[in-house]
Simulated scan of single mutants.
Amino acid sequence: MSETVRRVGVVGIGNVGKAAASAVLHENIADELYISDIDSERAKGEAWDFADSIELTPSRTRVLEVPLEGLAVCDVILVAVTERSQIPTQSRLELLKGTAAITYDIVPKLRKAGFKGTYVIATNPCDIITYLFYKLSGLPKNHVIGTGTALDSMRLRRQLSQVIGDVDPRSINAFMIGEHGDSQIAAWSQATVGGQPLDQFEEDNVDEFGPIDRDQVEDAARHFGWEIHTRKGNTQFGIGNALAFFAKSILNDARVVTAASVIQNGEYGQNDLAIGVPIILGRNGVERIIKFRLSEKEQEGFNGSAELIKGYIKQTLEEHEETTAN
């Protein structure tokens, strides 16, 4: 990582990419922001538009439009590519064929160009695409990170906050784990409020807000992205800011705890896939995977989510082998 110039790249300048780039720029996270898109003229226009906004902010970030290979000098590349014609109707998994094809195209090019930094991937389906980036990039597993259930965990904390008397979500420690999709689960056994186990907090305050309907809270967190999507046609600001948060945490060596989709090597009893779990995020990317002691029911749900991801990884690899063979 450069010690003098902090460089962040954004590949894919659609709704999510623009939101991520805006957050990086206006939070002054990087010295240089590189943006790249298959539509280079559009990306150039976005870069110029971002540059117009800088004088009115504390930021002095330099914004450049570059070809894909130009991102190789970056410390962190934020990945928000998708096929613009693709709009999922029921599941993020619907996007897989198109986004896998883009992944097989761009990652070898960036590897050949010499990228040695850290990927942070929001492209859906996030867990499978993160795994493909890992397999194709040649980077160590701690340098390939999907946003995974990071945003879902924020949604869980916010939903829980509303149930327990509007406690600041930042005082709640609770995570969604597993697939960034319909099979994710809440790790309720590990949830705390102000450091107090959630079960104890609920017992002490049951007269105030009554029993917590965990199923309702979990389901709301799981599907909140779709609630946004059905109303405005996309999600962008939440996930865009999550991407910027990951970049800032890496560049600042924040060593913050967040959920993310990362490669498993025996943690949680799983191997050879990317899946959402809590991690410590810092200069080296994934500094450590935090291993929760899940309840039997939670472990069963997590395993089911892992098997779903593995099935789609297997399918994607087989389809690619068949395509290249022909």
Rank of each mutant, 00 (worst) to 15 (best):
L294W: 09
Q90E: 14
L110H: 08
A80N: 05
H143V: 02
D52G: 11
A242V: 15
A150H: 14
R111S: 11
V167C: 10
G70T: 05
R288C: 01
I35G: 09
G181D: 01
D152C: 09
G98V: 08
A23Q: 01
H26C: 05
N142P: 00
E27F: 11
Q216M: 13
L95E: 12
R157N: 07
A113P: 01
R293H: 07
S153E: 04
A51Y: 00
I263E: 08
R62H: 04
G282W: 06
R60V: 01
A51I: 03
W226L: 05
Y104P: 02
V11S: 03
A47P: 03
S171P: 07
T118K: 08
A43W: 09
Q90L: 14
A274C: 15
I275Y: 13
S183Q: 13
N234V: 09
G9L: 00
G210M: 02
H26N: 10
A113L: 04
E296R: 13
G225F: 02
G269S: 14
Y119V: 03
N205V: 00
L64Q: 12
Q200A: 13
R111A: 14
G282P: 04
K314L: 15
V206W: 09
T258V: 15
S85L: 15
D49H: 04
P197G: 05
D182W: 15
T230G: 09
D105N: 12
A43T: 01
C74Y: 12
G266I: 09
A247I: 01
L71Q: 07
A19T: 09
S153K: 00
L198T: 00
Q90T: 15
I239L: 11
Q264P: 10
E69T: 15
P125T: 07
A101F: 03
I164W: 02
G45N: 10
D105Q: 09
R283L: 12
A100S: 14
A186T: 07
P140E: 04
E94I: 01
A306D: 14
E227Y: 02
I164E: 06
S91D: 14
G194K: 01
F133M: 02
H26S: 09
G269Y: 12
N241A: 13
I29T: 12
A247N: 08
